[in-house]
Nucleic acid binder design. Structure first.
Lengths: 254, 254
DNA sequence: CCATCATATAGTCAAACTGACTCAAACACC
DNA sequence: GGTGTTTGAGTCAGTTTGACTATATGATGG
């Protein structure tokens, strides 16, 4: 287990801003003068209209004021002084989708001077995963809409870049971390779990090899339940082993 | 190259604040009211006084005002409205150590409500690597001192936690990313590079296997120079292949 | 000049891991 | 009861990895 191997993580860059439905907007001046916002990239799996295969989708909100009025943007808002960062991310998620995140993690802090016209805004961006079935019936309104993650229109600020980075992170992380189950219910079949991996990685995986690697990962608990109904051998239901990963560092997840 | 394998990256948590020698300190109120600071965890390799082996060291600054007056803290300060985040990190690094970073990357943004008494402060924290030889003659004054990374005193705010997280990140990243050379000069022997890895990972590595893995990584360019003088076979000098990693996502490094 | 020392560098070997693939099991459906 | 489809077990070869052996080469000291 030495040095170099496969992938090299990212080193993103500052950039956008995030104000879905920001509230107060007076350009207050801090110690040295910057505004702090929190935004969230929310991923869910949905069947593509055409292929029927599941793909990644995310909700965006329409901006109702300048700058970038009428453009779509990531859900977010100014950080209240009395709210934790992750809590603010979870709240904006809930406000736009009426969902609770199954997984929520800080992505990156974007702070380029020029990413927002006029006011300097620093955005702490989180990324979240929500369950597919729940996302199906998630609220959609005039100013909230779900988009296929790889077919986004030009977004406000540099939110396109943020989503790109979040996608990169999701795709690289799903290969070594146990996060795929965040798209599923408490119990699931290996086929369902594999479907998640295939949707995220955008490539087919060998069922037998996938099974082998998941079983050897030690993160699955097999139940004695099976799903019947399909015209083939019933699949066993599994549950995720919630015990903390031995490799995590400092903090918890949420 | 499927799913689960070795390590699971972190999910740090909010926490500290960072004001080495902060400047203005009026508790200005932003859009919703938080102060934004930038801090940097600066790593260098230094020979341990006793063992002579190289270990990780980092510079801290003594706080000259409340809160936590006289405690040691990470270099940092308030974010000027007209300065990029990474630039602010590099500047505080330069101001405290008179060095330029060979490697600089955003670590995490800490923003727990209670991590600073009184004022809510959100700190964007960077981590940096500097060359060992240069760090040797780095400035040290009454209010700046280098500490062994694994023997820190209680620091201001939750800077202890930040350093722990930065250490975790350095140790996991050195195994898959090409960052070890940031501790070295432009050319180096494989023994020197291995020494860096050993110091960071705190374990001995097999010279032959290390060589094999580095050579197969494709990131080393062998020069035709050798270092003579030692009482053994001369070691070849190598240079790092600066071409961008094919696996990086969105942004550059700095 | 030669023996010795210490590390550089090359090569070997077996266990572990991976991707591709085969095959029996088991249920729905006709 | 036969057919179709996916589950779940197992095989096999190629690759990777850790442990280890062996040779190369210059400095040093007699």
């Amino acid at each position: 287990m030495l040095e170099h191997s496969v992938q090299t993580p990212p080193i993103a860059q500052q950039s956008p801003l995030a104000v879905g439905d920001a509230r107060a907007s007076a350009a207050g001046s801090v110690a040295a003068g910057s505004s702090l916002a929190v935004s969230t990239v929310i991923f869910a799996l949905r069947p593509d209209d055409e292929s029927g295969l599941k793909t990644l989708w995310l909700p965006l909100v329409r901006r109702t004021r300048d700058p970038h009025r009428d453009l779509w943007a990531l859900p977010g808002g100014w950080l209240p002084a009395d709210e934790e960062l992750a809590a603010a991310a979870a709240r904006t998620l809930r406000e736009t989708t009426e969902l609770s995140p199954r997984y929520l993690e800080q992505l990156y802090t974007f702070g380029d001077i020029d990413r927002s016209p006029g006011l300097r805004v620093v955005s702490v961006v989180y990324w979240a995963l929500v369950r597919s079935e729940v996302a199906e019936r998630a609220s959609v309104g005039e100013n909230v809409r779900w988009f296929a993650a790889d077919q986004l229109p030009p977004l406000a600020f540099d939110h396109n870049r943020i989503v790109e980075y979040a996608l990169w992170r999701l795709r690289t992380k799903v290969e070594y971390a146990r996060i795929a189950h965040a798209f599923l219910g408490d119990t699931f079949t290996l086929a369902q779990l594999r479907e998640v991996h295939e949707a995220v990685l955008q490539k087919a995986l060998d069922p037998a090899n996938f099974r082998r690697s998941m079983e050897s990962s030690g993160t699955l608990i097999s139940t004695d339940q099976h799903v019947a109904g399909a015209r083939h051998r019933p699949a066993r239901l599994y549950r995720y082993d919630g015990r903390a990963s031995e490799h995590d560092p400092p903090g918890p997840t949420l």
